[in-house]
Amino acid sequence: MLSYLANPLRFMRVSRWLAPILGGGAAVLIGLGLTLGLRTPPDYQQGDTVWIMFVHVPAAWTAMLAYAALGAASFTSLVFRHPLADQAAKAAAPLGAVFTGIALVTGSFWGRPMWGAWWVWGDARLVSVLVLFLLFLGYLALRASIDDEVKGARAAEILALVGLINLPIIHYSVEWWNTLHQGESILRKGGPALAPVYLTPLLLAGLGFSLAFGALWLVRTRAEVWRRRAVSLELQTALR
């Protein structure tokens, strides 16, 4: 599938109809997930703050998905020198930064009433997600700071690959260290710890956020293809 889409013409043809389908699916799933989520009863420990989970957790999942996409695209661009992969990497970074920002801010709004603090520096989960946010910003800043677009892309791709080590750290941080953040409650041995009344809307919203990322990623990659085409044509016209 990936090698099929590696052809830019084919990618433009497929993404033209795939992006609206993903976007429409995302709108339906997020709408359904949040409608069901906001009807759930208060949790016996967290009260109504459990509602924050329906945006916080999907945003955190999607932030990690966006970084995995950035890492995979950077690897493909570095190893195979495929221009479309570099365009896809560049398109994923700002989206990932926003999803990580949403996860951090909504987490703070949950932490204040539950832990009595907006932020805890000693918490490995919080700090590793902050590092993820800084990796996205670092990738964007590095690309922007080097005038030569190819050199800037290479430097940023190396940073993106190094940063991949942070993904397992985020996932296992709640197991490896004693943290205020609660432990793994979905992907764990013995099945999810959440009651179905919370799990169903959470999974719907999570899938919706992921599809939204997919749709926006495709459209941003298309925009990047158009940008390079415009720049290249401008150069050709100037050289005539």
């Binding site: 109504d48 703050t49 509602w51 924050i52 945006v55 916080h56 801010v105 709004f109 949950w110 204040r112």
Partner: peptide
């Protein structure tokens, strides 16, 4: 908790 939920 509305002051935390809706801003989120």
């Amino acid at each position: 908790y509305a002051v935390y939920i809706w801003p989120a």
